[in-house]
Every structure is written in C-alpha cells, then in structure tokens.
Design a protein around this nucleic acid. Structure first.
Lengths: 159, 159
DNA sequence: AGGGATCGTTCGTGAAGCACCAACTATTTA
DNA sequence: TAAATAGTTGGTGCTTCACGAACGATCCCT
C-alpha cells in the first residue's frame, strides 16, 4: 500500500525526525522527572488522549511496542492513577484503557512544563510554523486528524 | 534565549515527535542493516552533509551526544570510508570531519532505501505536506535553513 | 460441554544505547 | 613552563527493549 512514487527531489525526514526527537527527549527527561513521568509515558498518555478507550493490545500496535512491555508501562501509569483499566463489557478479556481526570491534568501539566524544552529545540520556528508542525505530526501519528478540543492547560502556576 | 511566550492554545509536539521517530526508527533498522548503517549513523551523516567541516566536539554539541561516544560513531563511519578526519591546519588538535564522496553516495542510497519506511510512517501526509514537514524539521534541526542542493539520489536501482 | 484461540499478565534473559569517569597524547595559549 | 583544549581509549553501570515461556480468564465454535 502507498506505493506513491515521490518526485525527483528526495527529502527524507527520518534522520531529522530522529535527531529532533532525541534532543527533545534529553530535555524532557529532566523536566518530566519531578512529575514522575518519563518520555515514554508522555507518548502513551498523548496517544490515549487522542484515541482513548482502546484495548491494550491495540495500544501495543499503535505504539509499536511489545505487549509485554506495555503492561509495565500501564502499571506505572495506573499506580499513579493517571489511567484506568476497565474490563470491557462486550469482551471481558479486554482491558479498556482510559485517561483519568488526573491523567489528563497531569498530561497538561507535563506539556506546560515542556514548553521551555520545546522552545529550545524548535527555537528556529515561529509559533505559526510550530502549529503547522504539530498538525502534520498529529495527522501522521494517528493516520486521521486529531480533533483539537483538549489540552487547554488549565493546570497550575508553571504555565 | 528564545523566551517567546506561546499563545493560549498549547500544542506540544514533543510526544508526537518521539512517537513518529520511534516508528521510523523501527522500520529503518531493518532497511538500513544491509547497508551496514544504523539510524544513529544516518543522523550523523545527515548533519555532516548539512553543516560539513565541523570539528567533532562541535558535532557532539549538535548531536547532543557525549564526545566519547562520538568517537566510536565516527570510527565506524571512517572504517567504512564514509567520512574523513583531517587535522585542521589552523588548530592541529582539531579533527575536521567531512563526508567523503562514498559517504554522500551511501547516504543517498540509504535515503532511497528509506522511502518505503517513510511512506508507511507518513502515509497520512501527501507529498506537499511531507515536503513542508521536511523543511520545518530541517530548519529546526540546524537553526538555519539547509540549502537543498544535495541528495539527488543518483545511486542505484532501488530508487 | 469441550477445545482452541485470544487478551492480559508475570517472569526472566540478553542485547544495545548511552552517560559518565579516568587517564593519556598532541597541541595551543597564557 | 604551566594550564587549557581536542581527541582517543577503556571501563562501568544503568536503562530500554525485544523476545520467549508459561499462566488464568474469557470468548467462540462445534
């Protein structure tokens, strides 16, 4: 699928993506530590916010992680009461994972805390460009557009 | 520097960046293996192509890696004759690192080989959007625009 | 009711990436 | 000459991660 041949000018984003993600992650770690979160957790929470109510096998597919490793990740998050696992009524084998209120709040806090990190890494881009970047990344990461009705960053003082 | 306060709508790209980079990296590894390269090598080569002729300490700063680990990375690349270390005439302590012809060629090959991976990961974006993404990432990663006079993918059959 | 498949879970193992420290050489600079 | 800098080497330990094996619970099909 998607055998669309690109034009002659080949601009591969892979390495750049990797590079920027690394730089972002390095800064994120120190900022996120006081919140008890790690970059991976952030990714998971973000995905959950975007497409909540997924079983954790589906989550494993989205995050492209081994399902056994998903368990540990979710254990962390559940211990902190940022997510909830509920058994699906339709299929009681299934654990439906959802963000709790605390989780959404913590995610917003984390995003606020990351503002300075992002300013550093994306310093060369103006706000409009960052918004464009966000939209592109968002579309790419979910395959479908993520409706932006969340994350108003109501949280605390740091913002 | 860059204490520009963002507007009210908070869209943090960090997690998405991480997510996409991971997906890309997973696919890249298998594709790159036959070329004897790893994603990290690709990143280094890409940075070198963009801002060649840097000392390796500067490289460490750009890549935000420990300089001791840079050495190993460059050793790999030099052993494959993809880069050259030359002593700077001005400061003979310094090793100026530059892409060799082989290196540029190999990089192009690698980028071609990554086309399918990128198609998968960025499948939701059309070519114009990918180009936009590339430009944004490129600007962000170097701080300044990268002149796009390279990587015409002259290489081989796979492209 | 029985049998096979599926979801989540736990445990363990091994490889890889990476930060960090310490020591050394060659070279520049004060 | 002494101190600082660029690169190199070697080692140590932490963390992440993929992968395998086994298990209970549950669904689905016959």
């Amino acid at each position: 699928m998607s055998a669309q041949p690109l034009d002659s000018s080949e601009h591969r984003s892979g390495a750049l993506l990797d590079h920027l993600a690394r730089r972002m992650r390095l800064r994120s770690e120190s900022v996120l530590a006081p919140l008890g979160l790690r970059p991976r957790h952030l990714v998971a929470l973000t995905v959950l916010r975007a497409g909540g109510g997924t079983g954790q096998q589906a989550l494993a597919t989205i995050l492209e992680m081994d399902s056994t490793n998903i368990v540990g990740l979710l254990n962390d998050l559940e211990a902190k009461q940022l997510i909830e696992r509920r058994r699906s009524p339709e299929d009681r084998r299934r654990h439906v994972v959802e963000l709790t209120e605390d989780g959404a709040k913590r995610l917003s806090e984390a995003e606020c805390a990351l503002a300075s990190a992002e300013d550093e890494v994306l310093g060369a881009l103006d706000p409009a460009e960052r918004e464009t970047l966000y939209k592109l990344l968002s579309r790419a990461s979910t395959g479908t557009a993520v409706n932006c009705t969340e994350a108003i960053c109501v949280a605390d003082d740091t913002c």
